[in-house]
Every structure is written in C-alpha cells, then in structure tokens.
Design a protein around this nucleic acid. Structure first.
Lengths: 355, 355
DNA sequence: GCAACATTTGTTACCGATAACATGAAGGCA
DNA sequence: TGCCTTCATGTTATCGGTAACAAATGTTGC
C-alpha cells in the first residue's frame, strides 16, 4: 500500500480567512427596516409587503447572510432537531429507517440528529444525555431496552418518544414496531409447512442485541408449539452481526447435529455467511440444508441461491415513526390530548430459493 | 403481510406531561451561588472550590438539570457541531467514514451532524445551506465536485473544509483522499500481470457518481498504457450502485464481447452481483471470467469465491479527516497559520479467489 | 501583621434571533 | 368625514447560557 503522505502546498492555495459573518441586524440596516421585519420576510406566512420582502432578499443574497438557527431556536424554544438512536449505521435495515425518518422530517423543517449505540445500553444512555442537551423536539429509539437512568432522563425530558423495531412490554411513550419473536415464529411455521422437521437456529451469544434474543425466543416457542423438540441453537460472538460468524456457526451446527435440515439465522447477513460456507464445502442449499435469514437485505435478493427471509419494511418504520412524531408535536402544540399509541408494522415471510 | 394496526391504549399508559425544564438559574438559586459559578462547575479546568462544585452537582442531580447547548453555543460562539455530507448512509464505505469521524470528534466534545446527498450535487447544495445555519465549526465533504453556489456558500462560511475520498484538482481547502483513477489503474495492471488480456469494465452510466467516473477513466488510461485496446465498458443505471445491476451488466458484457476474460466492477456490490449471476448461469469464476471489485466490502471477504478488490481504509479516511480538522481548529484558535494540505491515504489491491 | 499574590465568586453585558405587544398607514363603510 | 378594521412595521424583552472584568476571600512569606 502506498504510504500515507501529506503535502504542504501553501503556494497553490491561499489561506482562507476567518471573519465574522453578517447577522440579521446587518441585513436590517442595509435594507432600511428593523430586524423583526427581516425575520418575518424569512418566515413564510408572515405579513410583509412584497416589495419590502424583495428588497430584503436582495440584500441577503448580496451579503451572503445565513440565518443562525441556534439563536432562533433559543428564542422560539424550538430547536428544529429530532434525535434518532440506532444500533449501528452499518446495517442497512437501520440506515433505511434513518432515511425514512429524514424524509418524513425534512419537509417540515426538522433536522435529524443521528447517533449510534453500538448495541450498548450504556452507550445509549450516554447518547441520550448528550442529545438532550440539544433540546430535541422528539426522540426515536431502537428497541425497548434502556438503562434505568436513560429512562429517567427521557421521562424528565418531557418530549415525545417513539420506540421502534420492537413491541416493548413497558413502553416509554409511543411505539412503531413489530414482534421479533412472532416474526421468527412465522418462519419456523413456514419451514414446517415445507416439510422441514429438524430446524436449527443460529444467533448471537450476547443479549446486547435484544431483538436477536427475541428472535431466538420466538424460535424456541414455535418449536415447542410444533412439538419439534428443544431445537438446536448455535450462538456466536457479540453484535454487530457479521457474515463470517454465520460461516463458522454452520460448520459447528452440522458437526454437532448432522440431522439438521434447515437453519434460521438471526439475520440475513449470517444466513449469507452460512450459504457461502456451504458452497465452499459442497453442501447443497437447500438440498443438504435449507437456510433462512431475517431482514430482507439486498444481499439476500441477489445471492444465489436467493435467501428466504422475514421482510420488514425498514424504511417505512422510519417514515411511520416520523409521521407519528410530527402528528404528536402538532397535537401538543394545539393543546390537544395525545394518547400513547402502538403502531404495529407488518412483516412477511418471503420464500426464495434457499428453502 | 399482517396489516398495519394502531392500538389506542390510553388506559395502560398515562399521558406524559410536558412542562418546562430547570435552567442554570434554578441550579444557582438552589445551590446558593451565581449562575456563573454553576457554569464553571460544569466546565472542567475552571476554578471552583471542591465543596462548592459538589454542592452544585448534587443539586443538578436532584432536579435533573440538563444544560442547554443551544444557549451555550450562542454565547460562546462555538456550536460544537461538525457537519459531514456523504452520498448515502446505505453504503458501508461511507458509513465507516462517518464512524471514523464520530470517533475522532466525540472525545473532543464535538458532535457530528450527518447528511446524505443521494449522489446529487443539487441536494448537496441544499444540505450545505441547511447545515451552515447550525454554524458548524467545520465541514467534511465527500468528493471534489460541488455546485458553484455550494462552493460560494462554503467559501463565505469561513470554516475549515475537508474534501475526502478523492483528490480534487481544485480543492476548496484541505483534502484527505486518494486517486480513484490511479487505484483502478493499479487493478488493471494487477490483472495484466496475472495474464488477463481482455479486461472489461462495469460501471454506472451516470456521471453523478464522480468517483465512479474517475474509476472508469483510470481503467481506460491503464488499458491504453498496456496497449490492451479501447477496452469493453458496460454501463447501467444511476447511483446508488446496486448488486442487481452487476448481474444484468455481466450478461450484456458476455453477450457483446465473449472474449472478455476479466471484468473490473466500479464497486464490490456490482462485482458480487456479477459473481452470483455467473453461478446461476454456470460460468466459472475465475475460470470462465475473473471478477474484481472496489471498496473491500464485507461481502467480498465472505463471498465464495472471495472477491479481489481495491481496499481503502474507509474508517481511517474519517479518522484522519477528523483529526486534521481538530488540528486545524486548534491552530486557528491559537492564531497560528494554517496551510491547506492534501493527505493522501493509501489503497491496496487485494487479490482473492475471484481472479 | 501586612503586603503581594492566587483562588474563588459575583456582576454586567451580550450572543442573534423571535414572541408579544404597540404603533402607524391604508382601506371600507355608514 | 369619521370611525373601525386590516395590514405592515417597529419596539422591547427575553430565550439560557458564557466572556470579560470586578470584587472578595484565602494563602504565603518575611
């Protein structure tokens, strides 16, 4: 690899100067109006005569004025921020949700402050504390598991909170999610209908990923319902879920329980790892073993064989949560009563070539 | 799919009350000191007696005071924000860079404001304008292509700017990146050394992805250097790069130029699509055709055959850019001169089973 | 014991916008 | 014409902190 190199090329580019920027008062002076009129000209819906507004906008363009939302927010008591915490931005399920949130908010002048917790409740707590200092107007969390202190902070923040990607037993406020256990159970039932009887489960060994733990619980419940015995579970490593872990796990699974004819993986990423390892070892999928994942990632659609999965509309979770938050903020502002609601989002078992 | 359902369960959860939060003045009054002393107690390095600080912290804990960074930032003229714009958060290369940035900043009390441009310069311009209203202390951009208005906004913002993932001809300020053309050229040379002579290229048809266009240019330059003719290029769709597009492109490539014995893809994602399509059709990789990608995504490491790629340390681009920005801010504050520098980051051709 | 200095705390002004209220001008209607 | 309404604009106070300076208190050394 070429070594990292730094070039000092002061000659080619001038040092950029740092100087103070124009304020609303500057615009006001140059347009011959008061600062308040400038403020109104920038807010649509306010009563400013057409020609005054035009003059003001000309001045703004000319001197390159950029309004300072920090000051505006302090005064109006509305920061324009909404915070979202997701486990990682490196998982397209969660980043899709973040996109849905951004899209829901951007038209309404709200900006998303994104943080990632690395699947750690302690880190989530830190982030909650850090984010609350920005006075967000609402917060969107992933999952229903939080430290007591995080819950306390959120409670006293007195802003709308939405928990997503889960159906917590004891929600803080509003919820947009689904039951990970139920969804995994549906996959077990689907495999059963297709004739598989020795169904294994591959998942993380840590409870840090609570959705992963819920999926495993759903697997165990469904196995019991169908009288398929205790099941065969292989666990590996800590979150985030990686493809490679799946490859290691399937080798262990087959070694330990050769009778297993199907595996459900906690995520499509591990399912992909399983399938690649099977290719490598010449085990036919689904002939020797059927493989199912969770999350409907792009890789599952494109993989050969394509991977059976539980499809959840990740983007829509974000979009719905965003819209619910907007509606809640509207209600609060108009003084209407807001009833905490739980919005269940649908999921679907998508059967593909791998089962 | 189960229909989306909303439950109104007002009975089970009380409506959360929205009330005003304690301020620093409240803390001051309850601790019997002035607000300024509270402010000092919260800032480490300030001279406050141990017992006063303890008393203040007790009060803060008791009433659940959360400092308001909005107000603090307005007063101190330091927002504590740094903005980063990336094409999409759904690509682990860029999200890794964002993680590197977050890690570099978080210890220094700076918070990352992340935006994604969807590979559109117009959207980037909008985001630049929107972000500048938050008075970020610096900005990290992806690539060197920006609209004139965006450049103008950035120039007059008078904050340090770092362009990444590229070596722009005419940089705004500082740069942390590498030459996408050179990197792709290195891949062509590597394939040549391995004996491939009919090397094709699969990339996007749009110039919106300027790094993609640079990679294609690098391919063409290297083909000319090696006297391998004009080369064979198949282009498809618009960014973001998808796996499926690779699958379509390889079929077209083989149909049009059956003599092609190796393809370089603009990204590992399309390379993966190519390989899966080859599996599906029974074309051996690398026997019938060798396949190389770009970016060293997880899928390339885990895939069978594993995919030859150009590896760039995405996380490190973010980390380095973050540290460069921190150093620049330090220098500016201490009044030292700051020379715009270009930091080249290394890349490496990683040969795997697919070539 | 007191000057000289260090440490801790307080006071005032201000960051840059907006809310709330006040004012002035233009238009409508009897 | 005169009064009332409507629309456009200005004035003042304020949001919740921090910078800068001032004052008070504690500490040290001779």
């Amino acid at each position: 690899m070429a070594d990292d190199v730094t070039e000092q090329d002061s000659s080619s580019r001038p040092q950029r100067s740092i100087m103070s920027r124009p304020t609303m008062a500057d615009v006001a002076r140059l347009s011959g109006v008061s600062a308040m009129t400038v403020s109104r000209a920038l807010k649509d819906g306010a009563s400013v005569s057409a020609k005054t507004r035009e003059r003001i906008l000309d001045v703004i363009e000319e001197i390159g004025y950029v309004p300072d939302l920090t000051a505006g927010g302090l005064s109006s008591k509305r920061s324009g921020f909404v915070t979202s915490l997701i486990p990682t931005i490196n998982n397209s399920n969660f980043s899709d949700t973040a996109c849905g949130l951004t899209d829901a908010f951007s038209k309404h002048g709200l900006q998303l402050l994104l943080g990632y917790t690395d699947y750690s409740a302690a880190r989530e707590e830190e982030l909650v504390a850090a984010m609350l200092r920005r006075r967000p107007e609402g917060m969107i969390l992933t999952g229903g598991f939080h430290t007591p202190r995080a819950r306390h902070l959120l409670d006293s923040a007195a802003i709308p909170i939405i928990e997503t990607w889960d159906l917590p037993d004891n929600p803080i406020d509003q919820v947009v999610g689904f039951s990970n256990a139920e969804a995994t159970g549906a996959m077990v039932h689907d495999l059963y209908k297709r004739g598989y009887r020795n169904i294994g489960f591959i998942g993380g060994s840590s409870n840090r990923d609570t959705r992963g733990a819920d999926r495993r619980a759903g697997y165990e419940i469904a196995m019991a319902e169908l009288n398929l015995g205790e099941g065969h579970v292989i666990t590996f490593g800590t979150p985030p879920i990686s493809m490679e872990q799946g490859g290691q796990a399937i080798v262990q699974m087959i070694g330990q329980w050769p009778e297993v004819d199907a595996v459900i993986c906690v995520s499509d990423l591990s399912a992909f790892g399983v399938i690649m390892e099977c290719h490598r070892r010449g085990w036919d999928v689904p002939g020797r073993i059927a493989v199912a994942g969770f999350g409907d990632f792009e890789v599952s659609r494109c993989c050969w064989p394509s991977i059976t999965t539980v499809s959840v509309n990740s983007y829509d979770i974000g979009k719905q949560a965003g819209e619910l938050l907007l509606a809640t903020l509207d209600s609060l502002r108009s003084g209407a009563e807001v009833k905490p609601a739980t919005q269940k989002v649908g999921f679907k078992v998508v059967s593909r070539e791998s089962t």
